[in-house]
Computed example of a mutant assay.
Amino acid sequence: MERPAKKRRYDDTLLVVVIILAGIGLILLYSTSAYNGETKFHDSFYYLKKQGFATLLGIAGMFIVARIDYHRWVPLANLGYLAAIALSVAVILVGDEYNGSKRWLSLGPLSFQPSEFAKVAVILFLACLITKNVKKMDKFRTLIKVMLPVLPIVGLVGASNLSTAIIILGIAVVLVFVASPKYAQFIWMGAAAAAFLTVFLALESYRLERLAIWRNPEQYEKGYQTLQGLYAIGSGGLFGRGLGQSVQKLGFLPEAQNDMIFSIICEELGLVGASIIILLFLILIWRFFVIATRAKDLLGAMIASGAMAHMMIQVILNIAVVTNTIPNTGITLPFISYGGTSVVFLLLEMGLVLSVSNLVE
């Protein structure tokens, strides 16, 4: 008698929330970017069409990756790590500069942001490295051994994209923290990170200038974007002006569809709408946690924990920047801010986590 075919089952809540966020992201992006698209490209759908194509591509990739056993990616982890370093070097040497930031590589008519690939590559690489060294994670030298390979990527990415470098370093710290049975040694790591950050900020005057702008944005010309974002948040009130009714996106808030999109969400949908978006991200992070705790092995737990750290750090930092809680570092809001490379690799990362969540009945 033949055994019934094995049926694949994924974390339905995670999948539904990802699809909802991707769909809401497209709606909010169009609302935020229509004016800029019409003004710059004579097409109010310009940004939506590009983001929509990237989202569909990412969703297709997500389902493909979700069907692949995540253990099959282990042999490619080192290659992905080396590719991330090579692409980061290429950005420094031959990268394209937009709006004063050198973060992109051009591949014919397409532009590609290697730092987004680096986030996923680091999660997979560290998950494999920690799994190999799990029995020695109580030793400080093992923590150093695990963290050292991340520093070249952090340094290379940080040369042109400090915000992404902070996220990558944060992902690494969280993964090591989760895998380590001893927590006291993280005091030394925290002290070393604080010293490194102090030196890193002091190397470039513009980084120190950002601190001054953060403290008194009204006294600096570069504080204009921050102030306009705060005006948008304050004018939204409890229920907002209504979807599509933002005033600040009409040229007052530069490039509103990018890092500062959360301020337009607050203006149009108010505190209630912004809270719903935050709630969706909290559900997403909660599902990552559940998947990590129920994973079949350590590798799966590390992959889910890496995705959880990535989402948690990026969402918190973006909202903190928009509300001027921390200095402006140019961090996008996952699934919602404009960026084709970002949404594609985010969705591929979600596919990897769905693969971990896969249960066989």
Rank of each mutant, 00 (worst) to 15 (best):
V94M: 14
I130P: 01
S101N: 10
R141I: 06
K135I: 10
A90W: 13
A90K: 11
Y98V: 14
K139I: 02
K139R: 15
M137Y: 02
K139T: 11
D138L: 05
F125I: 00
K102W: 02
A84E: 06
L110K: 05
A90N: 10
V89R: 03
I144H: 05
L105T: 05
R103M: 03
L124V: 15
A90Y: 08
V94N: 06
F140H: 12
D96R: 07
K102E: 08
S88G: 14
K132W: 00
I123V: 15
K102R: 15
S106Y: 03
I130E: 00
P114R: 06
F117P: 12
P109I: 08
W104L: 05
W104Q: 02
G108R: 08
P114V: 02
S111W: 01
V94D: 04
K132M: 11
K145M: 09
N133R: 15
N99Q: 15
V94F: 15
V89E: 02
D138N: 09
A121P: 09
V134H: 11
M137R: 01
V89C: 04
L82C: 11
A118K: 08
F112S: 01
E116P: 12
K135S: 12
L93E: 12
S101M: 11
S111R: 13
A90T: 06
G95R: 00
L93V: 15
G95P: 01
